[in-house]
Design a protein around this nucleic acid. Structure first.
Length: 445
DNA sequence: TCTGGGGTCCTAGGACCC
DNA sequence: TCTGGGGTCCTAGGACCC
């Protein structure tokens, strides 16, 4: 530690050496306990109380408030196993409410866009943004201002990691959360750069999952610091090009760009576990029809038609054997976005793979080979007359408009059935505060 | 009895072509 | 006896992310 005191001036009290002012950085803005935070924005009673949000079908824990984490409730814990514990500790419980989280995510993104257009919405609760320091404001100060503005404008607390690369920004964000500081930086020149990387287990590095981690450990790479020091060519040969890029990123060399314009989706899916398993082909047909409807609604929202359809069923087998899956993939004669056309193919596929007497846990409809709605090629195998195609398109448009205006499922295909016993459970669902008029909060003075 | 859902990318290997 | 080189496309499977 050194004091720089000029002889002409009186000795100043010690201040930490100012950190080098970077001109630019990647910032990762990560919402804290996002789903829990969303629920709390609209229900203040949940603040300061331990809170968990459950996955679809109330299956397992997918978000925990800080208080719930302090109670050692593990991420991914099956609800039925920990239910007693939660009740005993007075933990509040919510079913997931994706319409709400999606809206809140958009608000956070819009707030971040007031700082820079260089923004990648990486996931529902994370954004990468490119930042440039100004004459009056350092990168660190900018990070702090971002955190404050998002908190103030949306009610969602966020943590900000500042670094030269995305992979280091990930680690920095983790530091920011761990220390409780809200903002953390990780530049190669920083004195704690090595210590932080040494303190980051390989499993926590972005891009190293539970399969690769033990393999890295077995060749003497237990931390981010060790990976940083690995030979790049060797890593590429052993583990592939993505991991080699990761090595460079850890050294501070940007190798993953901020993707400002997300490429169009390559697949759209609707897959769900059943609340109550369908018990007959008829009941399963209803479920599949309903799943097709939902998948097609997503598809049309993205202005795409699909050329390939996959249907799969999963049984209750504990082991993931070949027997626990059944699936069919169908190349459609012509790319389409009609619910009834795809449903016809899906139901034909279902009859082929359905086995009576088997209890199915889950079904999924996946649409691939997506193309823009305009300019789908005419096919000689298309047995629909052009006039009927046009009519079908208008019908879909009308259904979407009516459903959007009057609630998601007011118009359904008859084949979806009315009873829908297989519908998933969500006993603790919060109101649709942002997407249904009757659920909007009312403030009385 | 009961453990989510929706994606992406990369690689290896085979078929096929010139 | 001997069996090239370079390329594309497709699929399955494995890994990852949140």
């Amino acid at each position: 530690m050194s004091f720089k005191t000029s002889p002409a001036e009186p000795a100043e009290p010690h201040r930490p050496e100012p950190r080098r002012a970077e001109a630019s950085a990647v910032a990762l803005v990560d919402c804290d306990n996002f789903y829990c935070s969303c629920e709390r924005v609209f229900d203040p009673k949940l603040r300061r109380r331990p809170l968990v949000v459950l996955s679809n079908n109330d299956g397992c824990v997918i978000s925990r408030s800080a208080e719930a984490k302090a109670l050692d409730i593990p991420m991914g814990a099956p609800f039925f196993k920990i239910r007693r514990d939660l009740e005993k500790n007075g933990v509040a419980i919510r079913s997931s409410n994706y319409a709400l989280y999606g809206d809140m995510s958009r608000r956070v993104q819009e707030t971040l866009a007031t700082f820079t257009p260089d923004l990648e919405a990486y996931s529902i609760d994370e954004c990468f943004i490119g930042l440039t320091a100004s004459a009056v404001e350092s990168i660190d100060e900018l990070g702090e201002r971002i955190r404050q503005r998002v908190g103030q404008w949306t009610g969602i607390p966020v943590s900000v990691g500042l670094a030269p690369t995305k992979s280091l920004a990930k680690i920095a964000t983790h530091q920011a959360k761990r220390s409780g500081s809200g903002v953390a930086r990780l530049f190669v020149e920083d004195t704690d750069y090595e210590a932080v990387l040494r303190d980051t287990p390989i499993r926590k590095v972005w891009g190293v999952g539970h399969r690769l981690a033990p393999k890295f450990e077995s060749v003497g790479i237990p931390t981010a610091w060790h990976l940083r020091g690995a030979d790049e060519a060797w890593v590429q040969k052993q583990w592939g090009v993505t991991l080699a890029r990761l090595v460079r990123e850890l050294r501070g060399v940007p190798s993953f760009a901020i993707e400002t314009n997300p490429p169009p989706k390559k697949a759209v899916a609707f897959t769900r576990s059943f609340g109550v398993p369908p018990e007959s082909l008829e009941e399963m047909s209803e479920a599949v029809s309903a799943y097709v409807s939902k998948a097609l609604r997503k598809l049309r929202k993205q202005r795409r038609k699909a050329g390939v359809l996959s249907l799969y069923l999963r049984t209750f087998d504990k082991e993931r054997t070949a027997h626990s899956f059944a699936s069919r993939t169908i190349e459609l004669p012509v790319a389409t976005d009609w619910t009834h056309e795809i449903a016809r193919h899906a139901l034909a596929a279902l009859e082929e793979i359905y086995r009576p007497g088997v209890r199915y846990k889950k079904a999924g409809v996946i649409l691939h080979d997506l193309r823009p709605t305009t300019g789908v090629q005419q096919s000689i195998f298309d047995d629909e007359a052009p006039a009927r195609r046009l009519k079908g398109e208008r019908l879909m448009q009308a259904v979407d408009i009516i459903n959007q205006r009057h609630g998601a499922e007011i118009i359904q295909t008859a084949s979806e059935g009315l009873e829908q016993r297989w519908q998933l459970r969500c006993a603790h669902r919060s109101p649709k505060y942002t997407s249904r008029w009757t659920d909007v909060l009312v403030v009385r003075c």
